[in-house]
Computed example of a mutant assay.
Amino acid sequence: MNRLSTYIISLLLLCSNMATSQNINDLKEINSQIWNNFSKSFETLNYELFESLHSKDLIRVNGGDYKSIRNKEAYLEGYKSRWSNPVLSQTISFRFSERICKDGMASERGVYKFTMNPRTENQKIYYGKFHVILRKENGLWKILIDYDSSENESINETETLYQNTFAVDDFEKY
């Protein structure tokens, strides 16, 4: 009986590790296809790259003081016009509080840090919470639902929420 128990426990641990590995592989794929390209598109003002990250069925929601809900075309139009100014300098980074993915679907929540005019005397930093729902479309991850809010500008560098989230490549939590 002792050998049977050991075998069952070993099998359960093996299956658990296989499920985790699959999850981490999906997260790495999401990082490569979504988050790396999202940040790159902001830094290079590459509208086409940014547009390619979003599902044709995108629903974009702004919460807090800037309440709105838009489809893909209405949301992306603002970026197309803003990013036509080649002098614009900006960066964006993400930290995660929760990442769940399975069967070509994912939910990711966290905090972003958006910097205008980085490393200059005119630097301005903005923070907000985000929650995105992703789905795989034709083998590629796409943003289906994108929600963010500045929480009425209550999130900042020293705010516990930002400090207690995890880097995009920190998979130990998940």
Rank of each mutant, 00 (worst) to 15 (best):
N71W: 04
L58G: 09
N71C: 02
F94A: 07
Y66P: 04
I59D: 03
H54P: 00
I59R: 13
Y75M: 12
W83S: 12
S97G: 14
T91S: 06
L53W: 01
H54Y: 09
R60H: 14
G78H: 09
K80S: 13
K72Q: 05
E73V: 01
G63I: 06
L58Y: 10
N71G: 02
L88C: 03
G63W: 12
Y79C: 06
V61D: 03
G63Q: 10
E51G: 04
F96E: 00
R95M: 04
S55D: 05
A74L: 07
E73G: 00
E73Q: 05
E77F: 07
S97M: 14
V61C: 02
K80L: 15
G78Q: 12
S93K: 10
G64K: 08
L53H: 00
E51K: 06
S55T: 03
Y79T: 08
S84F: 11
I69H: 06
L88N: 14
H54M: 05
Y75C: 07
G64R: 12
S84L: 08
E77N: 13
N71P: 00
F94E: 00
S89P: 01
S68C: 11
D65T: 07
N85H: 11
N62W: 15
S93C: 02
S81V: 14
K67G: 14
E77V: 05
K56H: 02
S89F: 00
K80G: 08
K72V: 07
T91Y: 00
I92G: 01
F94W: 05
Y75R: 02
V61Y: 02
L88M: 12
K67L: 15
D65C: 08
H54S: 02
H54F: 11
S81F: 13
G78I: 15
I69T: 12
F96P: 01
K67I: 15
K67T: 11
T91P: 00
S84W: 10
S81R: 14
S97R: 06
S52N: 09
E77S: 12
G64D: 03
G78R: 12
R70I: 02
A74P: 01
F50W: 11
R82F: 11
L58I: 07
F94I: 09
S89C: 07
A74K: 13
L76F: 01
S81H: 12
N62V: 10
L58P: 02
T91M: 00
R60F: 15
P86N: 14
V61P: 00
Q90G: 10
D65G: 08
L58M: 06
I69G: 10
L76G: 07
Y79R: 04
K80I: 13
S68H: 12
K72Y: 03
F96N: 11
L53P: 06
R60P: 02
R82M: 13
I92E: 03
